[in-house]
Structures are given as structure tokens and as C-alpha cells.
Nucleic acid binder design. Structure first.
Length: 311
RNA sequence: GGUGACGUACCCAAAUGGCUAAGGGAACGGUUUGCAAAACCGUCUUGUGCCGGUUCAAAUCCGGCCGUCACCU
């Protein structure tokens, strides 16, 4: 059965070189296409700051789930899962294999283990909760579903609202939601990483390149079209450029007013992302962990085992 | 060389005589179930440049020294 073929998920911290590696790996096989698993590459017009693969790269190997939504539209983990499942089916039907590449841990977890059987977010209902303070929200939830409330930190406003939203939408207690089963036996989670010294060097180099390629101009142009509140403009790099353009200084830290100050702020935020991603992956069940450069031969061998001719 | 300002933790920064010297950032660790490059939580338990003086009591007042910055010659 075609659909039972293994699919590698190539993940790991940002700037490790996942995308380029994936393209190099796929070029040798001709029948593999890449499915993006990065929460920001799905947005059109956000190109430089997201380190989106360029046209040449996109031409070498076909990519899915890149540039699929407008920047002002919110794209969720559930959207990601259904799109991926759909794409895999489609590829299988024409005898192609999929390779999933990206560092958005939450999306991957949703793909591997499924989300709960719950309705999507509802702006109307969320608006209703807006005036309430965190402790008021917490008290409400404690009253309606104390089990769930005890699992949520009292200041975790986002999750408190989500839990109350589910209650209102379904009448069901969030703590009793049933899992939506996801067949994950075909996925192989591979994490690639590299030593801090290499990774940080790459991060700095990458940010230099972004700034030289017109990153600031990209942000200026995006801000003419979209409100500053949209999610991708809050993301790493974009947020710092916005602050730079608005001359907004961070609290608790002195940063030069110039391009060097901007660069150091983006580096800082990117390193913090790396750390968060590593923390995330630490708790995930992995099939392989590779250190790039050092373990490349082994990685290629494993890749051959899964995507090789006979598979 | 002269004048003035300033010197508080790894960094920024409150507190100008008196309870155990705020707060923030960074860092480190963690949570994560439809916004996730988001959001949230925990840990950073003696550090007021140096020396001396005044006082019951000094980061805080006085003197000197060292250092930084600004301006002047």
C-alpha cells in the first residue's frame, strides 16, 4: 500500500540549514517533494525575514505549503495538519514521496499526535472575554471545569480563554475532550542541530544577508498594506525591524539606534528562538538526532534507507 | 591643566540618612492540544568604585583617591 511508506520529518532549530539540506537530499531522487512545516513560510509576501527558500531552490524541488495564505489570515496548527494530510494523499496518488521540513514544534506535534476534538477559535466569543481580568477568567474556569483550570497557570490568559471558549461553544468540559486520532506510524521525526559556535555564526551571517537583501524595505512595504497587529509582523526579525522603524527601544536594555543595534536585536531574538525550539524537541520522541556536518554521511545513509529505490 | 556630572549585580535602572537595597533585561531551566517565530511559569538566596570622616544609624552627608563622561583652556 502506497500510503504506508515512511515520511521523514526533518526538523530542528532555526538556521541549522534544514531547508538547503532537504533540497540537496531530494535532488538525488526526483520523486520526492517537500512539505513545509514552518509556521511563517505559509504567508505570502513574507520572504526575506522568514528565510524562505528562493525561486531557484523552489525550482529545484517542488515545495508545498509555502505562500498559501494572505498575511492577515490566521493559519493554525489544525489547518497545517489537514493541509499536510491532504498533500500526502495527493502525492501518494501520483506515486510521489513526501519529506516534511520545518521547525514549528507545535505543528509537528499536532501532526504526529493529533489535536483534541474541539472547535476552532471564535472571535466573537473571545471578544466577550476581553474585558475580564486574568483572575476573573481563572475563577470562571475553576467553577466550570476545575480539573482543566488546575492544569493552567493563572496568568496564562490565552489558554484560559481558549478553555472557556470551548465550554461555551460545545458545552463540554475541555478536560474531557477526546483525542482526534492521527496515524503517525509512517512519520519519522529527525532532529538536526549543530554546535552553538557554528549555529550562532550562521545566524549572524544569515541576518547580515537578510539586511543586505532589502529586509527593511520588505517590512516598510508590508506595513503599508497590513496592520501592525497581524501575526507575521510580530515574528522574529519583523518585530525588531518594526521597532527600529518606529524608534521603539526595548525595556531594560540599551541598544544603539542604528542598523547595528537592529542587527543585535534580531540576533538575540533568534538565539532565544533556538533555545525554545531545543527545549521543545527535548521532550519529543525522536527517531534520530543528527549533528549537521559531523553526521551528514550517516544521515544520507538513513535517508537512502527510507527513500531509496526499493522502498 | 580647569570646571561640572556621574560611579548600585553580567547589563540597564529605582531608592538621597533608618524595616531583610525596587523593577526590568540577559542568562539558565520548564510548560505547551485550533494565534506557537505566540503565550505562560520557575531559578538567579548579600551587589552600592576605593580609603577615611560625621552619625545611634550612610548607597544616601563631608574629605581624599581612582575611573567614566561632558564642557572649557
Amino acid at each position: 500500500m502506497v500510503s504506508e511508506k515512511n515520511i521523514v520529518i526533518l526538523s530542528g532549530p532555526t538556521a541549522t540549514g534544514k531547508s538547503s539540506l532537504a533540497i540537496e537530499l531530494c535532488k538525488k531522487y526526483k520523486n520526492i517533494e517537500i512539505i513545509n512545516a514552518d509556521s511563517l513560510l505559509v504567508y505570502r509576501e513574507f520572504n526575506i525575514g522568514t528565510a524562505k527558500p528562493n525561486l531557484k531552490q523552489l525550482g529545484e524541488v517542488k515545495h508545498h505549503l509555502i505562500d498559501i495564505v494572505e498575511p492577515s489570515v490566521s493559519f493554525t496548527a489544525a489547518d497545517f495538519v489537514s493541509r499536510v494530510n491532504h498533500t500526502i494523499k495527493e502525492l501518494n496518488s501520483i506515486n510521489l514521496r513526501a519529506l516534511i521540513v520545518g521547525g514549528s514544534g507545535f505543528y509537528l506535534k499536532a501532526l504526529l499526535y493529533g489535536l483534541w476534538q474541539a472547535p476552532p477559535g471564535n472571535l466573537e466569543i473571545r471578544k466577550k472575554f476581553e474585558p475580564l481580568t486574568n483572575s476573573e477568567l481563572y475563577k470562571q474556569l475553576l467553577h466550570l471545569d476545575s480539573k482543566k483550570a488546575l492544569q493552567i497557570k493563572q496568568n496564562d490568559r490565552y489558554r484560559l480563554i481558549r478553555a472557556l471558549e470551548i465550554l461555551e461553544l460545545t458545552g463540554q468540559k475541555p478536560s474531557q475532550l477526546k483525542p482526534k486520532l492521527q496515524n503517525n506510524s509512517q512519520f519519522k521525526l529527525w532532529i538536526i542541530d549543530r554546535p552553538d559556535k557554528d549555529l550562532f555564526y550562521h545566524i549572524e551571517k544569515r541576518i547580515d544577508t537578510m539586511l543586505q537583501s532589502g529586509f527593511i524595505e520588505e517590512v516598510i512595504s508590508l506595513r503599508k498594506t497590513y496592520p501592525p497587529t497581524i501575526f507575521p509582523l510580530q515574528s522574529i526579525g519583523y518585530k525588531q525591524v518594526c521597532d527600529y522603524l518606529d524608534k521603539k527601544k526595548p525595556k531594560g536594555r540599551k541598544v544603539p539606534d542604528d542598523i547595528y543595534g537592529l542587527k543585535s536585536e534580531i540576533i538575540l531574538a533568534t538565539r532565544q528562538l533556538v533555545k525554545k525550539q531545543r527545549t521543545w524537541f527535548k521532550s519529543q520522541k525522536k527517531d534520530f538526532c543528527f549533528e549537521l556536518d559531523r553526521d551528514l554521511p550517516e544521515l544520507e545513509k538513513e535517508f537512502e534507507n527510507i527513500y531509496g529505490t526499493s522502498a
